[in-house]
Simulated assay, not measured.
Amino acid sequence: MDPRVALVVEQLWQPVPGGSGRYIVELSRELASTGVAAMGIVAHHGASEPSARDLGLGIPVVASRLPRRALYAAWDRLALPSVDRLCRGVRVVHATTWAIPPTRRPLVVTVHDTAFLRDPGHFTSHGAAYFTRALERTKARADLVIVPSQATAEDCLGAGIPESRIRVIPHGVRHTEVTEGEVASFATTHGLTRPYVLWVGTHEPRKNLPSLLRAHRILLDRGGDLDLALAGPSGWGDDSEEKALISALPSDRVHVVGHLSDRELACAYAGACVFCFPSVWEGFGLPVLEAMDQGVPVVTSRGTSMAEVVGSAGLLIDPVSPDQIAEAIEAAAGPDHMRLAFAGRTQASGFTWERSARAHADVYRELA
């Protein structure tokens, strides 16, 4: 049976959609090939806001009468309004993030991570409280829970979600081919005249950027010739330490390139000598997979979901040890470079959005 499924896709209108936004776009793009008829649920948006197509969404959408803040609050506090009238003929409802709609239909919830339970201080108090309530709703109402990694599955088990209701479905990666000319143009635009270590992410506490900045200081003190490029949008939290560490580095050796388009990001990956992602915790760590797909040796955190993603194709470090990070970057840029580049491409080839969508379709059919 090929069910009709309604996905909550409002995340795409957030100021920083992040990896969850990428997940929604890629999943909705691939579901048609699985036989699943998908539609999106969104909040009310004015004419001045981007359309679903502008944001990369190719499925039809239905809109609530409430704007996002009011809709999320009503779902969170009142368990209203139900989305069933919006989604006539739908067999399954899928909450793709912590925005969980009231419904009498079978409900799937994607839990990207439970990092707010590990260290609430890495989140705003409002965010941690909202996520905690959403987790309780998931435990009470979700028929099945999708997680992107075994690490997140273990966290869900620890939070009280039965193993029988958890399905591990890794994310995928879509390769973007860029030319040498495009990569060279990107480097010129951002003043990247030397080989560089790349970091990609939203600036927030759990990304652990200060440890990488300290490692970069160690490498420069050793006479290293690698620059550091930091890509990604502004986030939240006290970034005074991060700014102080950047200011203490030579201005021509650290490059804050900011938010990049998908194509610019592909150029940033393709031109990098090493990709370093010392986050203390992620539900999956999509930038690690994107870097490997472009043939960039990866340094990332052991004991995390990123270690699952890289397998033996990357170098694993204690994320709070700048010395370990520096040593691994030196190895990835030097004697281990070609081995890691080849191994990373091979490892990344096993993660596709097509495979991920087929596994999602199996979950929908299981409930429908």
Rank of each mutant, 00 (worst) to 15 (best):
W75Q: 01
T110H: 08
V8I: 10
V42Q: 10
V183A: 07
I100H: 03
S240T: 13
A73Q: 11
L228P: 03
L27E: 04
L66R: 09
I325Q: 04
A229H: 04
A37L: 11
L260D: 06
V363S: 01
A140I: 03
L289R: 06
I169F: 01
E290V: 11
D336M: 11
F351D: 04
F284C: 11
G172H: 03
R104T: 14
D362H: 13
W75T: 00
S321G: 04
V173S: 12
C87L: 13
C276F: 05
S125V: 10
R214F: 02
A151W: 01
G121I: 05
H360T: 06
I100N: 02
C273T: 15
V62T: 15
V42E: 11
A140E: 13
G89S: 07
V61Q: 00
P101L: 01
R141P: 02
H216Q: 11
D221K: 10
R29P: 01
A32S: 14
P102R: 02
S312T: 10
R174F: 09
Y130K: 12
Y72A: 07
F123G: 04
P102M: 05
T179H: 07
L80G: 02
A361H: 13
D336C: 11
Q14K: 08
R345W: 05
G56H: 12
R85S: 14
L213G: 09
D143W: 00
L367Y: 05
G223M: 04
V288Y: 03
F277L: 08
L107R: 01
L260N: 10
G127K: 13
R214M: 13
P335S: 14
D318M: 07
V363G: 02
A268H: 09
R345E: 14
E366C: 12
E26M: 07
V16I: 09
T152V: 13
L245R: 04
F342V: 15
I59P: 10
P278K: 11
P120R: 03
I329G: 00
Q14N: 13
R137A: 07
T97R: 02
A331I: 06
